[in-house]
């Protein structure tokens, strides 16, 4: 059997080609425990479609998450996953990518996870510009712990931690990200336009570098009516399109008539758009493929062979090993 894996016959190649055509079901695992109506379902569907359409190998794909409703996503993907600790999805993902640059690494995090406890990691992840696809599931509330105000909750949000309404203006994740050096990909989508959601996540995946996608999503349980004015009025969504960005289909253009041609290379305009919240800008705000990735800058030309990994581990162990002969002591 061992020989089989080393020498691949033409028959096996055909078998592999046949097998690599996967369906959405091949990437599904379990039944999501999210509330019905939750925007997380739309994001899950979009990434499953992406995996299928890009033909990602489940064993070469990793979904890393922190803590929160959004962070349950790896459980429902039939790929590798890492359900990390609160706010620390990005360091884990960076570690994975550093050690295994051949893997496709996705990060799913929520507004509390990323913008509050994980804010420092978020800033440095943007700066490191490692080839990761980050999805910020922004439902503007802590849902898993049953309704506490998050940094992106609109001012005046009544929650368990802010019973008299939140006191601070919401943080704008787009303007923050656009203000960090080495930023290379920033986009915003809403969960209720699946077509654009899919296209933007696909563009983010194809971008070489750290791609930041903020997904405004509805929370039917704790913020049920929050997004309704935007949901029911297509004129309150501004679709950004460009030949280097997202192309809008004619059927979508009939519904969402408010559009702007925006070159994702134009940082100044991107910052202006990012500051707007009504209408909600949807599309790719900024993309610069020319920024070096950290894993490339720190690339180690040595092959990561088994013997090399083993010798590395041995060298580490040796630091703590006691050599009786050397010290003249006996057991």
């Amino acid at each position: 059997m061992m020989e089989m894996t080393h020498t691949i016959s033409s028959n096996d190649c055909l078998m592999q080609l046949f097998e690599e055509r996967r369906e959405i079901e091949d990437y599904q695992k379990g039944v999501p425990r999210w509330c019905t109506g939750c925007g997380d379902n739309a994001i899950l569907t979009a990434v499953q479609r992406l995996c299928r359409d890009e033909g990602l190998l489940p064993e070469k794909t990793v979904f890393v998450s922190g803590i929160g409703c959004s962070s349950r996503l790896p459980h429902y993907m039939n790929t590798y996953g890492f359900h990390g600790i609160h706010g620390r999805a990005l360091p884990v993902a960076e570690g994975v990518k550093m050690a295994r640059p051949d893997l496709s690494v996705f990060v799913n995090t929520g507004d509390g996870d990323c913008c509050s406890i994980g804010a420092a990691h978020w800033i440095h992840a943007v700066r490191y510009n490692m080839d990761l696809t980050m999805m910020l599931h922004d439902n503007q509330i802590y849902g898993l712990t049953k309704m506490q105000a998050s940094p992106t909750s609109p001012i005046g949000t009544k929650s368990n931690t802010t019973p008299r309404g939140s006191y601070l203006e919401a943080l704008n994740p787009l303007t923050v990200t656009l203000g960090i050096s080495n930023v290379s990909f920033v986009a915003q989508v809403v969960d209720w336009i699946p077509e654009v959601l899919y296209q933007v996540i696909a563009a983010a995946y194809r971008h070489k570098g750290f791609s930041f996608v903020r997904i405004i999503q509805r929370c039917p349980e704790w913020m049920p009516k929050l997004m309704d004015p935007w949901l029911h009025d297509p004129d309150r969504v501004l679709l950004l399109h460009h030949e280097n960005g997202v192309e809008i289909s004619s059927s979508l253009a009939r519904t969402y008539t408010r559009m702007e041609e925006h070159d994702p290379r134009n940082m100044n305009r991107a910052r202006e758009i990012a500051s707007e919240y009504d209408p909600i800008p949807v599309g790719i705000l900024y993309r610069n493929p020319d920024i070096a990735c950290y894993e490339d800058l720190r690339h180690d030309p040595r092959l990561r062979t088994n013997s090399m990994v083993q010798s590395g581990i041995e060298a580490e162990f040796d630091k703590f090993t006691v050599w009786p002969e050397q010290h003249g002591s006996t057991r």
């Binding site: 999501p32 019905t36 109506g37 939750c38 925007g39 379902n41 739309a42 899950l44 569907t45 969960d191 209720w192 336009i193 699946p194 077509e195 059927s251």
Partner: peptide
Amino acid sequence: SARCTSCNECTH
């Protein structure tokens, strides 16, 4: 269908 967000509301 193109606008469906796969939220499981109807399939439930």
